[in-house]
Nucleic acid binder design. Sequence first.
DNA 1: CAGCGTTGTTACAACGTTATAAATCGAATG
DNA 2: CATTCGATTTATAACGTTGTAACAACGCTG
Lengths: 344, 344
Amino acid sequence: MPSRSAVPDGKRPTLSDLAARAGVSVPLASMVMRGAKGPSAASRERVLRAAQEIGYRPDSRARLLRSSRSHLVGVQFDLRQPFHADMVEALYAAAGAAGYQIALSAVAASRSEQEAVETLLADRCEALILLSPHAPAARLAELAAQLPVVSVARRLRPLAEGVDVVRAADDEGARQAVDHLVALGHRDIVHIDGGRAPGAADRRRGYKSAMKHHGLTSHVRLVPGGLTEDHGAAAARTLLTDSSRPTAVLAFNDHCAIGVLDTFLRAQIPVPDEISVVGFDDSHLARLAHVQLTTVGQEARQLARRAVSRVVARLEGGATDDEREVVVTPHLVIRSTTREPCRS
Amino acid sequence: MPSRSAVPDGKRPTLSDLAARAGVSVPLASMVMRGAKGPSAASRERVLRAAQEIGYRPDSRARLLRSSRSHLVGVQFDLRQPFHADMVEALYAAAGAAGYQIALSAVAASRSEQEAVETLLADRCEALILLSPHAPAARLAELAAQLPVVSVARRLRPLAEGVDVVRAADDEGARQAVDHLVALGHRDIVHIDGGRAPGAADRRRGYKSAMKHHGLTSHVRLVPGGLTEDHGAAAARTLLTDSSRPTAVLAFNDHCAIGVLDTFLRAQIPVPDEISVVGFDDSHLARLAHVQLTTVGQEARQLARRAVSRVVARLEGGATDDEREVVVTPHLVIRSTTREPCRS
DNA sequence: CAGCGTTGTTACAACGTTATAAATCGAATG
DNA sequence: CATTCGATTTATAACGTTGTAACAACGCTG
């Protein structure tokens, strides 16, 4: 059995081990380790060297236990949604910059939102950031009675008491996509929607109003879709059997768009030559070299920053009620799946 | 400002609030909350009701701080790899069943393995499960000197002192794929490899030896690939420009296979009619209705279970050295991208 | 009814850290 | 030389929980 640390008894070294080694008191060692001002340069160096030698590492639990503030923000995300991966990454950065740590809790087929939230609460998070939560609004309000809660990408109407919302302007995103397609000369633009998924209603609305704005109300056409490749593929197959095929498709999200692309490919309908396709999210899928999907960017960075700053405002008392709902403007990323229609 | 809890001062309720409310002592309340045997049914009920009333929730940090055992296993995973998502989900289940909790720490473009591990250590995990770690073996050995470390899917040769390995039999998986293709009548089977990615060398070896076993040594052909769709697409393009096109392709993983499929589709080469494609991992990508990729299943459940039981054995003293490397046998999942070659 | 084991409950100390206040020290002041 | 000051260091007490050991109350045996 190999020795597991530089301290004799095999335990993980503690502050008092460190202090003993450096020949100083425990509080002084603590001050050095957390970079507080006070210790002299000499002590500082001595302690740091000792820390190096015995492999000391602060115990964040004890640390958090002691200080009433935990500076810990819980993040609930869905393992199956690539967009959440982008968000989590951005959240690490945003929280770090604001001096907060993140505790992750995943939702998956075999792990409910309920469980995910329970563990975050047990971990003593000061606030929760929930990525597209599905929990009923009442449940969110109940949580918000205990601690600040931010719902990302899920709109709440009416705003549940105490729950903040940070989301992209989905309607505006859809509008931009339609504008782009119309500018290229398209008129027969179909929207494959997301059903009851968060954001789907807004995207539908944005699509419709943009079409109307361009005088294309009679060309509005919605096809039921969903969040996955399979939904997109199914919707695309519906379009194929149609007599009047559209010249452009706006899909609910990138996944869905990929399903559409794939189906068209199989049917030997060249994209974008015969039909243009636009996605939504700008997930890494869209950026793949062989896909190069034109899509509406959700600005994960921005969303993450706003969510964190909202949380910080709540926790540190700078929260104002006019920011209960933060809406970030998305922007269209034009790649290679859109161009002017061939038979215009 | 709404009240945030049922306790007057607005703080989160503690065990002593609970005890006061229930009219019992703090230790008794503690025993009830953690389900220890001892308290009478009456006390139990009284405490539980009080907990309900004031919304008490145990503070896991204080809990862990007190008990020397933390029953916490740190898991490092990569947000960008879908296979890791499957593993994380399976790990939640496996750890829960063994009475352990999981702390997640993500790796991403802007977050290094180093950072991920640092936070897990600070959180006082008792052991680490690292999903395909890229850190040098020396670094892993260094970690293993502090606590049990399991490397999942990344083989270590020679076994680093104290680091356990749990992985799929990549060579065996590749062999199964080749056997399947040969049984269908294929001879010109190309392997698009994963370069230096974990497992790539084994898969290459398995491919080669299986080909040899079938007397197809002269048909062995390796094309440099990688882990992403783009790698697969690039490799497929190489194949297309070739004079002698293979009748089957074994890709390094599902992502790569999807890139291959896509490229063939664009080139109007029907799969599986003209060419068969096999992936690796059986990630959810492979299961998509419009993909239906034949692939080698990695058995995330199994891997997770074995990783956790390995960790538990180490922590609870049942570890034997003959299990330093656990190899799980993968199995081929036959879907719709393979069939007999057309010109056999 | 003394002695005993059971059952339920409690007091106390500890986990590793940090906030607070108090102590030490040399130097500079009056 | 006593005093005050700033800079550094230290003692002490918490944070919320749990393990240990001690304690009370009870019915039982002999």
